[in-house]
Design a protein around this nucleic acid. Structure first.
Lengths: 303, 303
DNA sequence: CGATCTTACGGGATTCGTAAACATA
DNA sequence: TATGTTTACGAATCCCGTAAGATCG
């Protein structure tokens, strides 16, 4: 049973039922009285039921009208609720946004940003996947994440990849390490003699470093999964390590010293990846804007 | 927040969300593709939210669209339910009708009529008030009854009273009563010597009888409220009684005899009373029609 | 280049408001 | 007669369908 009903007609109907006067109801609906009368008559014709008993002196609901006015009121309320819900989402008062972020960014750079975001949009739920770069991309591609910060550039037609920031590398070692006494710019060659604690090969950080010094190799003494564990190992004196500058907060400890690596080709590029064929939801757009506002500047290094 | 949404637009939206193709969805909605496109765009503008991500090759819901499509589906279902409910009432598949009927009609004439009515309209609830004439009128006037069968004509502007049927009177007595041997037409004068069992003065039947013989009086030996009790008293030999012909079924007993009273001015008029300013509900109209179809004919007397 | 959505535009239906006719207390 | 609803009608608006244009794969 296909048929058309508009909220305007329902609202007119309910108003007339309440006012029991075409003149007053028409005024409330901002219509001339004859136009209002026609609207009601059309509604009655469409519904196939007389809704009002009209005499020139009184307007009263019929039995069918009394049945329908309850439905109409509920329908109008439901429509309002649905529209309010939609508007809440559009206005960023409600919603959900899922992102995927490299662990190296998720641990240090992200938390204050999310605190800021949540303070500004308390109704928006957040879902952060702190996963490795390939997984970040996969989540965007499958729609599980609205956008991602990853370090591998993927050329795919359905993905839009834009440069987000670039990150230099730092060397971290114990203050009693021989490098602490060395002056001048640090190069990869100067690191070669020293034992190095590194991340696992699956990490993009490790891949960057290996690519930069290829074909020569560093003297890897230990491979780990987590940067915080790396920090502990370096503090224990097992060796030095090379990490992106944005992750230095892991190594903020009185026993440790850090120095920038002056190797131009050794720069970690971080990309913001999102789907090309989908607009960001309002919630995602809000987070996107905050992310962009907190975008790390190359010159602004911690410590 | 005043705004207009039509089920047509919602249906178009849901169809497009399901088909993910303007061309297919337009065909399903019996619209040209450009018209359909405009409809969707208008809806998006009205809602103030983009509902679809469109590329020439794919049409996909936005996050807001996914939020709203659930609401839209539910709204459409609710509208359908409301319309079906209204149609059920209009089509007499559901509803409720309340009538008020004189007890003398309610006990004998009404039951088979209602059985017929219920068989034809099983979804309609019935509310029968078997009350005295004045109460019948009061119930119609206050709206507690859709219409009534009463015996007092009331001239009121808001009531429409039409003649329903007229009912002669019968005398009922025991077969061993002296009247049983009497030949010729029965007149009130012939009843005068005999003790009579009567209904209470509040009954319209009693009032009819008293008005007809005024200023003379009958020899009332007993006053009762219920006709069935009157029948018992007559069977016990306490006296004869005079009742409307339609109530004779109360006296259907081998010990009792009945004879018509040939008194032209002694006729009980039964009126159908309803409100003048209100149309009957579909359910009430249905019962009205059945009542009219079962209208007792003056010549068709039981027994 | 083919499929698909959007824009442009003329014709037709719908709907509006003013004015007059009509109905009831 | 006064109040309030319906009918009549010209005008503005909205909406539809055809045709042309734009876009992506």
């Amino acid at each position: 049973m296909q048929m058309n009903v508009s909220t305007r007609a329902l609202h007119a109907f309910v108003t007339l039922a309440e006012q029991r006067s075409f003149t007053r109801a028409a005024a409330l609906c901002h219509l001339s009285q004859p136009a209002f009368s026609a609207l009601i008559r059309t509604l009655e014709d469409d519904l196939g039921a007389r809704l009002f008993d009209r005499t020139t002196r009184s307007v009263e609901l019929t039995a069918e009208g009394r049945v329908f006015v309850e439905s109409a009121r509920r329908l109008l309320r439901d429509v309002d609720d649905a529209l309010a819900d939609l508007r809440d989402h559009a206005a960023r008062r409600r919603g959900r946004v899922a992102i995927a972020v490299l662990p190296s960014l998720a641990a240090g750079w992200l938390p204050p940003l999310l605190a800021d975001f949540h303070a500004r949009y308390p109704g928006i739920e957040l879902d952060v996947a702190d996963v490795l770069s390939d997984d970040c991309i996969a989540r965007v591609r499958s729609g599980r994440a609205d956008f991602a910060l990853a370090s591998t550039r993927t050329e795919a037609p359905e993905l839009r990849t834009e440069s987000f920031c670039s990150d230099g590398f730092h060397v971290v070692f114990r203050r009693d390490h021989p490098l602490a006494r060395q002056r001048g710019a640090l190069t990869l060659a100067r690191l070669a003699p020293h034992p190095i604690v590194q991340l696992a090969r699956s990490s993009s950080v490790r891949q960057y470093v290996e690519a930069a010094i290829y074909p020569s190799q560093l003297h890897t003494v230990l491979e780990l999964e987590q940067l915080s564990t790396v920090a502990g190992m370096v503090r224990a004196g097992l060796g030095l390590t090379v990490v992106p500058s944005l992750t230095l907060f892991h190594f903020d400890h009185p026993d440790l010293a850090t120095r920038a690596l002056h190797v131009p080709e050794l720069k970690r590029q971080v990309f913001l990846v999102r789907r090309n064929d989908r607009a960001l939801s309002s919630a995602a757009q809000a987070l996107y804007e905050v992310v962009m506002a907190h975008r790390p500047h190359p010159t602004a290094r911690k410590r």
